[in-house]
């Protein structure tokens, strides 16, 4: 099953590469849409394979949830340490030997009274998009992560 998932991602990567060529763009999007429909149908049967970023603090979602394949992402990005993302801070210092696995981001980032939804959104965007920008790879535009289905 994981292999299947992997192949699909490679397919996306492949198509993204072609998409930079203008002539094939329309072709790409039609193919992509069909693929998307297929995947959508497929997803209905294999819910646990596709992961989205979820946080119980987001009650009224205004954008589609972000599709995020945890293992594939980390494999591609060559992330070894869990706390590269699941970080843990204490007194403003990042702890190298601790992580926050199993916690929702909002448990820390939306815990104070003054924190608003915008603060939580901000940390999510900085966490994902910030790294993508830094690494110069990965999606950064709104619609690239918040894909409409």
């Amino acid at each position: 099953m994981t292999k299947q998932k992997h192949n699909f991602c490679l397919a996306i990567e492949f198509f993204r590469k072609i998409s930079s060529m203008k002539q094939t763009k329309i072709l790409f999007y039609s193919v992509f849409s069909i693929l998307f429909l297929l995947v959508g149908a497929f997803a209905a049967f294999s819910q646990e394979d596709i992961e989205t970023v979820n946080d119980s603090a987001f009650e009224n979602q205004t954008r589609p949830p972000v599709v995020f394949f945890h293992d594939t992402h980390n494999e591609n990005a060559a992330i070894e340490e869990c706390n590269a993302c699941h970080h843990m801070f204490e007194d403003g210092k990042r702890l190298d030997d601790d992580d926050s696995i199993g916690m929702e981001c909002s448990e820390c980032h939306c815990s104070k009274m003054k924190d608003s939804m915008a603060d939580l959104i901000r940390v999510y965007h900085l966490q994902c998009g910030g790294c993508h920008l830094k690494q110069k790879t990965g999606p950064v535009m709104c619609g690239e992560c918040h894909r409409k289905r």
């Binding site: 763009k25 329309i26 535009m141 619609g143 409409k148």
Partner: peptide, 13 residues
């Protein structure tokens, strides 16, 4: 266009 993620929305963005 970008909001609705119509064709080629990355370019349109």
């Amino acid at each position: 266009w970008s909001y609705h993620q119509w064709a080629a929305f990355q370019v349109v963005m």
